[in-house]
Design a protein around this nucleic acid. Structure first.
Lengths: 333, 333
DNA sequence: TCAGTTAAGTAAAGCGCTTTACCAAATGTC
DNA sequence: GACATTTGGTAAAGCGCTTTACTTAACTGA
């Protein structure tokens, strides 16, 4: 079976303590013995069991990441950047996909802890904060990403979603739009973006568009479905603010199937600036998230927290940027 | 710190053995004691350490998944389906993204093993088979997905990539196309699809399009870049067979930037039938992979292998289906 | 009534590692 | 040459769990 430290020790004619020292380059070992041990390790293709190692209290250089939805390119790209930075820092990433299910969240957090990860990164998605509170209370290293978490006791890096919603909407208003609907999912970030949207309307003395449903999933299909409902209900509508690119793409399809031209008949603005934004026709005007920066920052924060126990927490809030493309245009009167 | 079995035992006035028995519902325990122990477990929010449990040789109900690229919707969707099926069967999924790096592959395989997963699912991507061989030799449960692995000693579920390439190309030929270029990445599945492509040409007495470069990454950008080169080189070209939807989308963009109309001036066919296929304009004609079935089958195979040790291995090969959409049309003479 | 069961629980070994003593031999010091 | 150090290494405890004996105490039945 798998070789253990005993196999190595006996084959190298030393004690397991010696092997362990060679492994961790701790203690004093003569050059000769070290080489002999290393050779045996090589020969047996020995890999110390993390189970056993972790059991003794050493860190595992593994970080868990909980994401709500692999299929959303935003999270895929975020994950990718987190992984990359982790790799640079010598940490491995264990990814768990929760599909926005609170019980899966809890389940996977337990799993990761029981697998002795050094820390857990929680990406957006979760609604209940109780899981986070629990981790914090246990002094388990957690970092939040893509979700503001106004609290002094946990590290986080997030986007200013409110500002994003505000800017996106303001841009549409500035283009002359007055009837602006919104496409959102009932999750924290989207609600923030909607707050921004409402504030923008208010600041310009406009009324909120009063036909509204939350989509159930952040998919193209749902975007199309709900946008179609909006368009069908008869209420005039010249622009749609979609809370992510997937939904925006759905909205484009909806418009098209109603023979509306984007952007001439209707403007559509997205959010995230994922790969999708440049795929659709017309390409999406969208609020870009600094995905790469977010990924790197959150991993840095996480590793920082793991390394030096008692450090003060930081809450990093990044700003979105408007990327103008073809899906929005001035309202033609 | 984290409560251990000892904390539970002493607080419940029993031995740790008793607690363990309650935990695993093994052995004989009076109802009274069981309840008392369970209550304490609840109170302390005790979760047995998987490290310690695994160390004693019990299975962890965790399966590792290695995927090459989260950002490719095909893998994202596949992962999603694997996870879902695992969840149904009571297994957790630990995902690792290798970014097509052989050393990350090896690294993560080691990691997963050291984290005591019960088995590992390897998705496509990997070029070297040595890692697989190693796992097999160690009798470590492995299953391959999205990659045919002609071997009698490992479970796999894959697509008939050759047939896919053959059918896609045949369809183009049937539409009247004679000059067909191919967009592919130098990975196993793509090479198989190309074999199919070549065979189809041959069967119809056509010559292979002899301008060819592999793309370096399966991204829209690379698809666009290489397709642009094809279009610029002057060799007549009426259709492109792209080995995945990402590349096909890039090809559409390339065509558009050269003012070629898709499909009137040039037909483009993709592969995978991911969400992207319906996003782009025109929507992609593409060879659909039964992603959902693949995900479920591979998880079933994996769990089967984990449960009963010495079972014979199965190699499941699924068929692709042609999905006709707007990106292909009859060649207009 | 007493040997034979059964029921309920415990002690202790073992899983593979790290780490803290501790020890013997070699080396240094005056 | 006697003592203090340094070097290179080991024994053993402990990490948190499972599991295999083993021990009581209570329950059978003829």
């Amino acid at each position: 079976m798998k070789p253990t430290i005993y196999d190595v020790a006996s084959k190298a004619n030393v004690s397991i303590a010696t092997v362990s020292k060679v492994l961790n380059s701790s203690g004093r070992i003569s050059d000769e013995t070290r080489k002999r041990v290393l050779k045996v390790i090589e020969q047996l293709n020995y890999q110390p069991s993390m189970m056993a190692t972790a059991l003794t209290g050493k860190s595992t250089f593994t970080i868990g990441l909980l994401i709500p939805d692999m299929a959303n390119p935003f999270f895929a790209e975020l994950t990718r950047n987190i992984e990359d930075r982790g790799h640079e820092l010598g940490y491995n990433l264990l990814i768990c996909s929760t599909d926005y299910h609170p019980d899966k969240e809890q389940n996977y957090i337990e799993l990761l802890k029981r697998k002795s990860v050094d820390g857990i990164i929680l990406a957006s998605g979760f609604e209940k904060t109780s899981e986070v509170d629990k981790l914090v209370k246990e002094k388990f290293p957690v970092t939040i990403v893509a979700r503001d978490f106004p609290s002094t006791y946990v590290n986080s890096v997030s986007l200013d979603d409110f500002q994003g919603g505000y800017e996106a909407t303001s841009y549409l208003i500035q283009l002359g739009h007055r009837q602006i609907a919104v496409l959102a999912r009932n999750v924290w970030s989207n609600r923030e973006r909607m707050r921004g949207y409402e504030k923008a309307l208010e600041d310009h003395g406009l009324e909120k568009y009063d036909v509204f449903t939350f989509v159930e999933k952040s998919t193209v299909e749902w975007g199309k479905k709900v946008a179609t409902e909006y368009l069908r209900c008869g209420k005039p509508l010249t622009a749609i603010f979609a809370c992510n690119d997937l939904l925006a793409s759905g909205a484009i399809q909806a418009a098209r199937s109603r023979d509306l031209h984007v952007p001439n008949d209707i403007s559509i603005i997205g959010f995230d600036n994922t790969v999708i934004a440049t795929l659709v026709d017309p390409q999406l005007t969208t609020m870009a998230q600094p995905i790469r920066a977010m990924g790197r920052e959150v991993m840095d924060l996480m590793v920082g927290e793991i390394k030096k126990e008692e450090q003060s927490k930081r809450r990093i809030v990044l700003s979105p940027t408007l990327v103008k493309r073809g899906s929005t245009a001035e309202l033609n009167k």
